[in-house]
Structures are given as structure tokens and as C-alpha cells.
Design a binder for these strands. Structure first.
Length: 198
DNA sequence: AACAACCTCAACCGCATCAGA
DNA sequence: GTCTGATGCGGTTGAGGTTGT
């Protein structure tokens, strides 16, 4: 680990925590240039950082409409259920939680929810049907999601023929956070999901 | 007050995939 | 069809903060 870090230090690229000044420069350049071509953005901003780092900073921190901290019970419940459905597809889960980033959800999961699950699994010694954690990404991910939906809906056999556009269905991007309660209620229909709040 | 253990979360890395030449 | 740079994703790390002793 240490060797990995020291090796990359040789490139003399600025790394580590971002300063307020760097944030400001980055935001200014993105405002005029747009959030694309991150390598160019990094250069234009005069930040001695790689494009990837700039993108991450923007996506996880500087982007407008980011909600920070205080994940509500409703959001937690939704994360829990979506994770049951999608596995470690953090970006997809984040896409269903307006203002939340994949990184934030991943962190929240690893630090909070995974513990709860471990506790529950100890109690239940139940089955686990998580999707493979090794990555198959993007289109493959979408395909996998369809498969999962297919599996879930095919439990009774006949329902698998229903044309269910789950992407549209779960698209909450224009909804207020209060809508999440409704979603949670709807998802309660899936009796395979954990009884979380009890 | 001092120290250790634990926790949180920003940031980095490697790799897969996309997109354009 | 192939190559290459850009982008996006998930796993992981480690600094700093918090809590316990």
C-alpha cells in the first residue's frame, strides 16, 4: 500500500485533501467550461491535480444540489432495499436518492448498514442472494438489473412477462425527498425484503 | 489529561467501458 | 475493426475526529 502511494508521489501531482481555494478554482472553470474534459479542466484551473481527482471532487462535493450528512430513516430504508435489489451498484442506488452521491452511500453502507445486516444475518442465518461484487459495469450493470427484476418478478412465474421499465419507475430525480416515503411503502410489497424498522 | 481503539468519510487506485479518430 | 484517451465505477486506504478507559 505505502509503496503504491510513494510511487505515484513521484509524479508530483497534488493530492490529498482539497483546499477551499482549489474548490473555488475548480468550480469557476467548470462553470465556464462545463463538467467535461476533466484533464483540460484540471489544467485550466491551474490545479496540479489529475482530471480524475477533479471529477471526483466535483461529483462528490462541489456539484450543486448535493445533500450532505443526516441520511434520513426513509433514505436509509430505501438504500437498504435498493441494495437488496441491486447489490453494490452504488451509482445506481445513488441515482435513486436525489442529492446523494455514490461515494456517500457506499460509505454509509460500509459504516452503518452493513453492521446492521450482519447482526440481522446472525439472527436469521438466512439466505443471501447478493449480486457478484466483482464488477460488471454500465450496460452490463443495466442488463444485470433487468435480470434481477426479472428474477424477482418471476417468482410467481407468470409475472415475468410484464414489461416493467424499472428505470422509469424508480426515477425519483424530480421528486421531493418526501416522495421517498411513498416509495418505501410501495417497496413494502416485496415481502422478500428485510423488515428493517421493526 | 493522555492514550488507545474505533469510526467516518474524502480521496485514491485499478479496471471496465465509452467514444471518437 | 482497432487504437487510444476520457470517463465512470466499485474497492480500498488513511487522516482526522470521536469515544472509551
Amino acid at each position: 500500500m505505502a509503496s503504491k502511494r510513494t510511487e505515484s508521489m513521484k509524479k508530483e501531482i497534488n493530492r490529498g485533501a482539497w483546499t477551499a481555494e482549489e474548490d473555488q478554482k475548480l468550480a469557476e472553470v467548470i462553470e465556464s467550461h462545463g463538467a467535461k474534459r476533466w484533464k483540460t479542466i484540471a489544467i485550466k484551473a491551474g490545479l496540479n491535480r489529475c482530471g480524475k481527482s477533479c471529477r471526483l471532487r466535483w461529483m462528490n462535493y462541489l456539484r450543486p444540489n448535493i445533500k450532505r450528512g443526516n441520511i434520513t430513516d426513509q433514505e436509509e430504508d430505501l438504500i437498504f432495499r435498493l441494495h437488496k435489489l441491486l447489490g453494490n451498484r452504488w451509482s445506481l442506488i445513488a441515482g435513486r436518492l436525489p442529492g446523494r452521491t455514490d461515494n456517500e452511500i457506499k460509505n454509509y453502507w460500509n459504516s452503518h448498514l452493513s453492521k446492521k445486516i450482519n447482526q440481522m444475518e446472525k439472527q436469521n442465518e438466512g439466505s443471501r442472494g447478493e449480486l457478484g461484487s466483482k464488477t460488471k459495469r454500465r450496460r452490463v450493470v443495466e442488463k444485470a438489473n433487468e435480470d434481477v427484476i426479472g428474477e424477482e418478478t418471476s417468482n410467481g412465474g407468470e409475472d415475468s412477462k410484464i414489461n416493467f421499465d424499472h428505470d422509469d419507475f424508480f426515477d425519483f430525480s424530480n421528486e421531493s425527498p418526501f416522495t421517498l416515503g411513498w416509495v418505501s411503502q410501495f417497496l413494502d410489497l416485496d415481502n422478500n425484503l428485510y423488515e428493517f424498522s421493526s
